[in-house]
Write a protein that binds this DNA or RNA. Structure first.
Lengths: 111, 111
DNA sequence: CTTATTTTCTCTAGATCGTAGAGAAAGTCG
DNA sequence: CGACTTTCTCTACGATCTAGAGAAAATAAG
């Protein structure tokens, strides 16, 4: 049972959401919008490529037929293992928060 | 907006739950039960003490009147800042998963 | 064809966080 | 006091995150 980090979970989910648009710099925009935090270029590619190495993402080179300026894009696509680990992360998260009995949760002003 | 890591979130929640029993080795038991993973002694104390340094936890020395063998226990207690950051972590988590439109979520077999 | 321009990605060094366990510390018991 | 028990301190190493300079790969211009 190998739970991923928060960053990894976020990147996997953003890749799922963006689908055909899931390439590095677009992913960065999404992540910045989501967190309200600035991310450097490496701040996205380094963890993304780690996810590839771990088998949770794969890549496809963009078609040069796109009639677009600049270097071709590299799309990230989630794998079956990636989906599996996302499910695990989510159920882990739920188990975590279910630790707290409801009265305590209210007392702390969580919920 | 300074989001904590998964380990930090887990430790804060376990401390909340254990209340008067929230000392190092007991926390370790709880974390092992929760994750099904083995944790070394340092594997709990290092992140716990980091949380203290960040102001999300404080400590209280255990009473020696406890009539118990061995070195006194050090209790961890969550601070107001700790509760705040837990709330942030949770709402961040929800925002993350709300990225996925429901049809896509079903298609991937998440939920 | 060669050079400029645009867009995206690669690389790697430093900071932060997680993992691991040996041994010190602080009590009680004999 | 010395042995025993329980809990904590310390620190080194590996993994992950952060940051940005510059390379790469395409099209556009001369």
């Amino acid at each position: 049972m190998d739970v991923i980090t928060r960053t990894e979970e976020m990147l996997l989910l953003v890749v799922c959401r963006l689908q055909a648009d899931a390439f590095g710099l677009r992913i960065r925009e999404e992540v910045e919008a989501l967190t309200g935090k600035r991310y450097s270029v490496g701040g996205v590619y380094v963890p993304l490529d780690r996810l590839v190495k771990k088998g949770f993402l794969t890549t496809e080179d963009g078609h040069p037929t796109e009639e677009r300026l600049g270097r071709p894009r590299r799309r990230y696509v989630i794998t079956a293992a990636g989906v599996r680990v996302l499910r695990e992360a989510r159920s882990m998260q739920e188990a975590l928060w279910n630790l707290l009995p409801a009265p305590l949760e209210r007392k702390l002003g969580l919920t």
